[in-house]
Design a protein around this nucleic acid. Sequence first.
DNA 1: ATAACTCACTTGTTTAAACAAGTCAATTGG
DNA 2: CCAATTGACTTGTTTAAACAAGTGAGTTAT
Lengths: 246, 246
Amino acid sequence: MVLAAQKFLQIYSVLKARVESGEYPVGQLLPSENTLITEFHCSRNTVRRAIGELVRDGYVQTRQGWGVCNIFHPIEQTSYTMGTIESFRETARRTGQKSTTRVESFTRILADQALANQTGFPVGTPLFCLWRIHDLNGRPIIFNISYLREDCMPHLTPEIASESLYRYLEEELGMVIVTSKRTITVEPATDLDRRWIDLGQYNCMAVVTNQAYNSQGVMFEYTQSRHHPAIFRFQDNAVRRPVQDL
Amino acid sequence: MVLAAQKFLQIYSVLKARVESGEYPVGQLLPSENTLITEFHCSRNTVRRAIGELVRDGYVQTRQGWGVCNIFHPIEQTSYTMGTIESFRETARRTGQKSTTRVESFTRILADQALANQTGFPVGTPLFCLWRIHDLNGRPIIFNISYLREDCMPHLTPEIASESLYRYLEEELGMVIVTSKRTITVEPATDLDRRWIDLGQYNCMAVVTNQAYNSQGVMFEYTQSRHHPAIFRFQDNAVRRPVQDL
DNA sequence: ATAACTCACTTGTTTAAACAAGTCAATTGG
DNA sequence: CCAATTGACTTGTTTAAACAAGTGAGTTAT
């Protein structure tokens, strides 16, 4: 039951495709849980789990006593999708654009107090420091500053880094990347930014700070992605939960 | 079982507090599901649901065959929390800052083609158009442009809007706000922005576009929140899900 | 010594059942 | 005619059980 995707993911995919294709009209109700149970030959919990994922995606909305309402609106092609971790390369491939990455600097350092405060690595941690430029359709648009724990990837090279870093970590090292904490801010452009990115009239960068944890709960990556503001776009679906101060 | 919060939320709150207080040390495992079951006198599903919420919050991380690892790091005080919908007023109160809101303009319009394209409202929809300024500690920092469906809140007044709009909708009208789609972009500052917000050296705004849906699946609000870039900060926890192209 | 296996533990998935609670239309009672 | 009730539907919460599958330590067989 691992080669074939889990049942709830299969059902999720089918329902998602139907919503996207318009098979379930926007603004109307999906079939009830009972109907879906008989269609997919599964338990109610499994149907509910699939629907729960669609809710998280902002595709549908549930209402007790009423049903599951389709609220799908096509998203912008160029946007990031939040709620999942997606690399630059994956986003570019999904949106059908041509992306390249080049390494501008690759050094080894120890985390000093200032860097420890900024990143959250313990003082003295051996780190790779990596500067990369991402081009989209031939134009540089993202300046990437990464700090990577050396003890998690001792044999990292600039060649590997210019390929997909995440593919290397996952496929070669068998590392499972589980959680990623992201912060979005807007910061004044630095000289380093302008050295590579043509900002035109803008004097700011959209900065995504990313802290990634492996399956052992160790933070192995701290990356600042400094985006050209004109191409930056982040999308998210929020579900309001009851406010509770227990 | 509705006055007393649901069981899984109670357990969630207790575990969350323990993680935040350091009762469960960072980097170590939480008690196993079985241990928690006996402590809370509940079923395994209920414990798992509580833990699932902590995972979504980026507080803990699970690993099959191993356990639940505490990866909590205190978040920035001034940051938004994604994954939940929180109003400006709620955020300010949570972070202990003094906030005020004033209405600069309150008009009624019909959605024309351009506005329909921008917002997603059907052409001809009667709308309230609302300009608000949010002050934090006496300084204007957010310029808010809202379009609100008139038929969802016929008796809206500027006085209500200067109070909490969401409180009015929820408590007075009984409207349940369920889903909210947000997009974050960085845009050049306009003359309208500069009329109210002192940007200093910056020439951009951090823009959060928000589309809110009520429980009937109707989009009733489209709001552009144009933030002073220096105080803007958005935080999020992403969980990597298996990529699957069924 | 080491490789393979076993075993006790962990979390992950799925099913089944019961009851709570919201919604809406039809029916009933005044 | 209108208000209240009923009843059939919906989703929401919780329990219980079974099996799958990953982890790591200890044991066994070679």
